[in-house]
């Protein structure tokens, strides 16, 4: 379980996060929703200790994030985290070099799934394929938790579908996922839990399945309700 407890963060005078709390469970896909600039990426960065928070606490399975955590949790930012001059094969070799949790079989499987050629240079890839490589490098790690920042933004429709397919596959199953988006439509049917953010606070945290069953509302319906209010 990832527990985010009352985290606050300022950028200069701007209070970006003003006491954000939520949890994300293993085996569930948790979606952070909010308009751009609401601090979604900052939350993911904070979970990965890539940016400091002014107060609050983040726990991964009850413990603070340390170097060992990076064999248990990974983060797929919205831009590629590999050197563009590398080929896909070199990038995979790099990952294999440093991560005990790297699973080359799964990487090969993803390669086939995304129809990527491992001798291609990352810099020569299309935007969609670059995003797929980025996804591959994260998903091929045998980690319990995966954070994804806007995996669908600025990507062509076919790539989106391919990526969305990943979420229903065994590649995700059993893992805890936190995904951010400002556009819910592509993945509405996939997500288990929704955290609605605005102005640095959590407006509503709910289970999409429950809401659908008990209130008969879709995620978009709840969003409309919450943001209009």
């Amino acid at each position: 379980m990832i527990e985010v407890k009352d985290i606050k963060k300022k950028f200069g005078r701007k209070q970006v996060l003003n006491g954000v709390s939520f949890t994300a469970n293993k085996g569930e896909i948790t979606c952070l929703i909010g308009i751009n600039g609401v601090g979604k990426t900052t939350i993911l960065n904070a979970i990965m200790a890539l940016t400091p928070v002014n107060s609050g606490e983040i726990l991964l399975d009850g413990q603070k994030v340390t170097k060992q955590s990076f064999e248990k949790i990974t983060f797929i930012p919205d831009a590629i985290t590999m050197i563009p001059q590398m080929t896909i094969a070199e990038a995979m070799e790099f990952m294999d070099d440093y991560y005990d949790s790297w699973n080359q079989n799964r990487a090969t499987e993803l390669l086939g799934f995304f129809k990527l050629k491992q001798e291609d240079k990352i810099s020569s890839l299309s935007k969609g394929n670059t995003a797929k490589v980025n996804l591959l490098l994260g998903l091929a790690l045998d980690v319990d938790y995966i954070l994804m920042d806007e995996p669908f933004s600025g990507i062509d429709i076919f790539s989106r579908e391919q990526i969305a397919d990943v979420f229903t596959s065994h590649l995700i199953e059993g893992r805890g996922v936190i995904i951010t988006t400002h556009e819910i439509s592509d993945i509405e049917h996939l997500i288990d839990k929704v955290v609605l953010l605005d102005e640095g606070i959590v407006l509503k945290e709910f289970n999409s399945e429950e809401v659908r069953e008990s209130e008969g509302k879709s995620v978009v319906d709840v969003m409309r309700e919450v943001y209009k209010a």
């Binding site: 200790a49 890539l50 170097k67 983060f75 590629i80 590999m82 050197i83």
Partner: peptide, 16 residues
């Protein structure tokens, strides 16, 4: 630049 390799470096399972 286009890449954000620092993410990778800081997320390596080794002391930063």
């Amino acid at each position: 630049g286009k890449n954000t390799f620092i993410y990778r470096l800081l997320m390596l399972p080794t002391a930063r």
